[in-house]
């Protein structure tokens, strides 16, 4: 191992089968699983101890939530396909697909904002009930994660994509890592939507 450069930033280490950033992002996702897990645990505890708890569909709009769900799953697919495009050395296709991913995410946020607006319009704030409190907190934290993902993806789409010319493999790995994060954000929503909207 050279004394100057850090090994396994691009190539995988033989025994772990991973390059550094991939292990790093999985560890980070493990901590995120604990974060959202704790919130789901709080949801369960609060609901189990409540006198009454509304069915999600009586307060939230299932069609809007379902639409958002399809948006997010689609953005996961386009993110994945943008990485596949890079592996096929098709930079143009990568840019289009990553761009669509970002747009779908922005659309998701718009729908979410509209949903929030519908609640605020009727003075249904988080302080009104524990259901609303946990709804706003969980979807709010999830939305913050979406925003984070949009920022990272936009950087990789824009200035960050210059790395394709100088270090294409390292850039491909970066898209893979960003993709893993993005899929996780989608995963959380796959639990969040049914729990909050359908139960």
């Amino acid at each position: 191992m050279s004394t100057e450069t850090i090994p396994y930033t691009v190539e995988s280490r033989y025994d772990t089968g991973l390059y550094n950033a991939k292990l790093g992002i999985w560890l980070f996702l493990a901590s995120e699983a604990m974060l959202f897990g704790a919130l789901f645990s709080s949801y369960i505890l609060l609901r189990v101890g409540a006198v009454d708890w509304p069915r999600g569909s009586s307060i939230l709009s299932v069609p809007l939530g379902a639409f958002n769900t399809v948006l997010l799953i689609s953005s996961s697919l386009t993110m994945l396909l943008s990485w596949a495009a890079l592996r096929l050395k098709d930079f143009k296709k990568f840019k289009i697909l990553l761009g669509i991913t970002i747009l779908l995410a922005l659309l998701f946020l718009s729908v979410k904002s509209y949903e929030y607006y519908l609640k605020f319009e009727h003075h249904l704030f988080a302080s009104k009930s524990t259901f609303l409190a946990i709804y706003f907190t969980m979807t709010g934290l999830h939305a913050l994660h979406i925003i984070g993902g949009i920022v990272v993806n936009t950087y990789l789409w824009g200035p960050g994509s210059r790395m394709w010319k100088t270090q294409p493999e390292r850039f491909t790995n970066r898209i893979e890592i960003a993709g893993l994060y993005w899929h996780f954000v989608d995963l959380v929503w796959l639990f969040l939507f049914p729990v909050l909207y359908l139960l």
Partner: peptide, 25 residues
């Protein structure tokens, strides 16, 4: 993926998420 490292991280997370979800209730 190559199994070992990911199994460690995921199994641990799964157990812990279960502990966080179930024990308080």
């Amino acid at each position: 993926e190559k199994k070992l490292v990911l199994y460690i991280v995921l199994t641990l997370t799964a157990i812990l998420v279960l502990a966080v979800l179930i024990l308080p209730s």
